[in-house]
Design a protein around this nucleic acid. Structure first.
Lengths: 235, 235
DNA sequence: GCGATTGCGAGAGCACTGCTCTCGCTTGAG
DNA sequence: CTCAAGCGAGAGCAGTGCTCTCGCAATCGC
């Protein structure tokens, strides 16, 4: 039952956006009365939170399967990085409203329940695992790091990836946020009338981010063509 | 009168966020009845659009004055770039809800009226002018560009900065979006419990972006300390 | 100076929202 | 067979965006 509610809510979300998502409309579409929905979700915000968790899981799964399909041996580490970036972008473009739900403005009153932090970190952990595989493969060139940032980088590394060099972890966090800057600008229309060949532009940026993180090895950069986008865009 | 309405609306926006901004509440606070507001703004979305334009102008002005205070001769081009980045971040942190209005999820039905494109590009043009000054000063190292992106970069350059080398323009657009990725993650709480020393982390990233764009010259990177944030955070 | 026009606020009202409460029905466990 | 729990229906409250009409006031044209 809660699944049916979420499914219908997701439909309305995709059709009209989070602002227009109405509990009454969901109930109406399900042939129920609005008060019945409160048996399953205590409030509209709780429904949204459930959708947020699902969205984090979906984009995380898209990233993970995209990575699992690439071999460090045959594709190289930069290509694996780009594959993850592409998968996240493809999911975002396919589900713009759900993307906005998780990476746009926080809709309710700043509520970030602890239940969302697990799924929320799946994309980040996928990016980390690309770097980790490269590190174990001696395919990671430690990027430069300002001396002033050294303590923060070490604390950061101890928290999220103790087995990686601190400068790499700092570069990963930066690349992580910058990747979503790229995607958000495209999804939210900031690139309208500016960037036209967005596929190629994104690929180039993703490859630059891979270099900034220190990924090397595998095929040459020019040998990573832009082919058909991954089909694994997650539902 | 419209100014008074916008002022009160901005107060509610800062207090509760865009979702809770209510025409009736604004009217109530102004001692009027809600229908009277429709003399000045045809709809709630039009009020929001006006606030969006103001916000774009405010952050653009913050960026421009931060740049105007730095001299290419005494500070160097990378420092000017970082100053602009800092100013945008400072404004965003000081006005998170207004920032969310313009760089978060597009709230209404995808409406990006043409009246917003002018103010919206002020930050971007400020970043471009930093690169232009550096270019005229021979302080710009053309970054590498994938061959596949060459045509797009040339079209892009012809559109937004015909006097700059196409690879620089492509790098500028990428850095522009990545800058807002950084800021959005911080404002929207994605860095919570992850990045602690956000001032230094941001400075380091901004300097990396300056290098990615090709800015060189001026003082050494290490000589740009993190001092007190700029006081020019716009209103 | 006076009448007409225009601008503006008030009020009522419609359709909608989230949410609460109570009341029955149904179902299944003991 | 009984009784309790779960669940949906319905009414209702407070609030929302928005539309319409009405009356007051100032201002403009003559």
């Amino acid at each position: 039952m809660t699944a049916a509610i979420k499914e219908e809510a997701r439909r309305q979300l995709a059709a009209e956006g989070a602002a227009k998502l109405s509990l009454r409309a969901v109930a109406r579409e399900l042939g129920m009365v609005s008060s019945a929905l409160y048996r399953y979700f205590p409030s509209r915000d709780d429904l949204l939170t459930a959708l947020i968790v699902d969205a984090y899981d979906a984009v995380g799964a898209a990233a993970e399967t995209a990575l699992a399909r690439r071999s460090a041996r045959t594709d190289g580490h930069p290509a694996r990085w780009v594959a993850v970036c592409r998968a996240v972008r493809a999911w975002a473009l396919a589900h713009p409203h759900e993307y906005a739900l998780i990476y746009g403005s926080p809709v309710p009153g700043y509520t970030a329940p602890t239940t969302t932090v697990g799924p929320a970190s799946r994309v980040g952990r996928t990016l980390i695992s690309v770097a980790r595989d490269a590190h174990l493969d001696s395919g990671l060139a430690v990027p430069p790091l300002a001396a002033a940032l050294r303590p923060e980088a070490e604390r950061l590394a101890a928290d999220v990836a103790p087995d990686l060099p601190p400068p790499v972890v700092a570069a990963l966090v930066a690349a992580w946020s910058q990747l979503f800057g790229l995607i958000s600008f495209e999804v939210f229309g900031q690139f309208n009338r500016i960037v036209e060949d967005r596929d190629r532009f994104f690929d180039h940026c993703a490859m630059s981010l891979a270099h900034a993180v220190g990924l090397t090895g595998g095929q040459a950069a020019g040998a990573v063509p832009f082919a058909a986008p991954d089909s694994d865009d997650g539902s």
